[in-house]
Design a protein around this nucleic acid. Sequence first.
RNA 1: UGGCCCGUUGUGUAAUGGUAGCACUACAGAUUUUGGUUCUGUCUGUCUUGGUUCGAAUCCAGGCGGGCCAACCA
Length: 560
Amino acid sequence: MSAPETNTALNFIEEIIEEDLKTGKYNGRVHTRFPPEPNGYLHIGHAKSICLNFGLSQKYNGLTNLRYDDTNPATEDVEYVDSIRDDIKWLGFSWDDRECYASDYFEALYHKATELIKMGKAYVDHSTSEEMAAQKGTPTIPGTPSPYRTRSVEENLNLFERMRNGEFNEGACTLRLKIDLASPNMHMRDPVVYRIKKTPHHRTGTKWSIYPMYDFAHGISDSIEGITHSICTLEFEVHRPLYDWILIELGMYRPQQIEFARLNLTYTIMSKRNLKMLVNEGFVNGWDDPRMPTISGLRRRGYTPESIREFAKRVGVARRENMIDVGLLEFCVREHMNLIAQRVMAVLDPLKVVITNYPETQTEELETENNPENAEAGVRCVPFTRELYIEREDFMEDPPKKYFRLFPSGEVRLKSAYIIRCNEVVKDAQGNIVQLNCTYYPNSKSGEDTSGLKVKGTLHWVSAQHAINAEVRLYDRLFTVPNVGDIEGDIRDYINPDSLITIANAKLEPSLCNAATGLRYQFIRKGYFCLDKDATPEKLIFNQTVGLKDSWAKLQTKEG
RNA sequence: UGGCCCGUUGUGUAAUGGUAGCACUACAGAUUUUGGUUCUGUCUGUCUUGGUUCGAAUCCAGGCGGGCCAACCA
C-alpha cells in the first residue's frame, strides 16, 4: 500500500499511455473499456483483462466503461449479462453509470453504414458464404471481385434498407466494405460488416433483422464512447488496420487499439467453447463449479478478489505468448488466506484416540489462537475429552525416518492441548487400525507445560463427543496435462477423474456450527476452506480452496 | 509457402546502447505448539550467426523457433 508506485517498472501499455499523456494526444484523458460478449461466464483470463483495463484508469485517474459486445443474438443471453456484471463487481471494480451495450448503438451503426454506402465504400452482396470464401483468395493469391461489387449507390441503399426491414432471409445477403481484394491482410479483402439474423436479441427484441459484425461495431462503439486506449488480445492485431480504416473513412474520433497476450494457465482451459462443453456434458456441475477457471468458480472455491487482483498484477502484461503455472495463482490465494483465515481444527479422515488416563466424564475448554498472523483475531476455546479423533495419516505403525507424527511408543503434542504417548494399537478382525490407546501427560498442558518433554510433532484433533459432521470437497486440477492446448486428440480424454474428492463425514470442531459463507477458514495443517453455497444448517459442506504447502508430502513422493 | 507479431533461468516479468534484476518454482539451512507462516542462502537465462559500436538483451541483416490471419463468431 505504502510502496511508491513510481519506482515500479511500467508495462508496455503504461509506457504508451504515459507517452500519450506527455504529448497530449487525448488531452490528458485515459478512458478504457472492458468489452465482453455475453455468451459465457467470465474466467480468470478475463480477470487479467479487467484488472488491466480498470487498473489503468485507476492509475491514471481515468474511466473504464463496461461494454457488452452484444452483436450476435444467436449466442447471447441475459444470464451471461448478469453473471458478467456480478463478477466484475465482485472483483472490486466500478463503471459507475457507464454500463454500455453495442446494441445501444445499432441505430447509429446503421447510419454509419449508409454513409459508407453513399461514399461508395460499401455494397450489398448476394454471394453465399461459400462463394465469398472462393472469391476471397488465399494469403498468396489475391481475391476476385464479387459480381455485386459494382452496384450503384442507390441500389445498395435500397437493398440495405430492405435488409433492415426483414425482406430477405438469413444468409440471403450481407453488407460488405469495399477495401482491397489484394491486401495481404485478409481482413481488408472486403469484410462483411452486416448480416441478416432473425433471432430475437436479448435487449432489442425483434426490432432488428440485421446485426453488425464485430469489426464494424467495435471501433465505432469505442469512438462513440470516447475511449482513448482500446485494449484487446493479440489475435485482434490483424484487425487493427480495419479498425483504423473504418474510423478514418467515417471521419470519426479514433482511439488507439493496443494488443496484449492473453492469459494461459496450466492444467486448465480458457476457451468459452470448451468450458461450455464441460458444463453441458456434465463434467462439472455448472459454470460456478469450484474446479472451473471461471470467476464464479473461483469465488465459490473460496478465492478472494484480492488474491485474483494480486495474481493479475504478478503475471504482468506483455506481447509474448505465455503459460502461467497455476501454482502462482495458488501462491496468491495462500498469501491472502494466511493473513485472514480463521484457524480451526478439522479431521478429514478420522482415527479414534482414547486417552486412557483421562477422566471419563471430564471436559476441558482449551484456549487456542484464531490466527497466529493476527493477534487481533483473538482466541477461542475447544473442548478436550477422553475420546478424540486425529487424522489417520498422522499415525504410522512402522514409520519412516523423520516421521514426526504418532507411532507406537511415540509422543506428540495435540495442538493447544497435551502431549500424549501411544501405548496400544487396536485392530479389527481384518487387521485395520481402528483405535489408538494413549496416555497424556497432565503437566504438559499448552501454555503451562512443566513436563520438560520435547516432541517433534504437533497434531490437530477434535473431541469425539463434540465433533460435528460435515461434507468436505477436495479439488484438484481439472486436466491431467499442463498444456491442454497441446492435446492432439479429444480433451475429454485428459480430464482428471479425481478432480473432485468428496469426504462424506469429516469431524469438525464445534465452533464451526457457526460457519458462514464468505468466511475463510484454515483447517490447521490441511488447507484453506470455505462453506459451500449448497450447505444448510443440517448439512455443512466445505470446499477446499487450496491445500497448505506440504513439505512432508513432497519429501514422501520424492523418496517414494 | 503471403503478411503481421513474438523469442531474457523451469515459469513469468524488468533492464529503453553502459554491472542481466525481481517474483513464483526448485534446493539447502534457521525459527516454529500448523512438516503452515517467517527468515537466510543457493542453482539455472539474453534462440542462432554475422554486422554497427569503446561497449549490444537492447540497433541492423540473415537464419531458426513459436503465435496469429483466408467465420454471415468475438
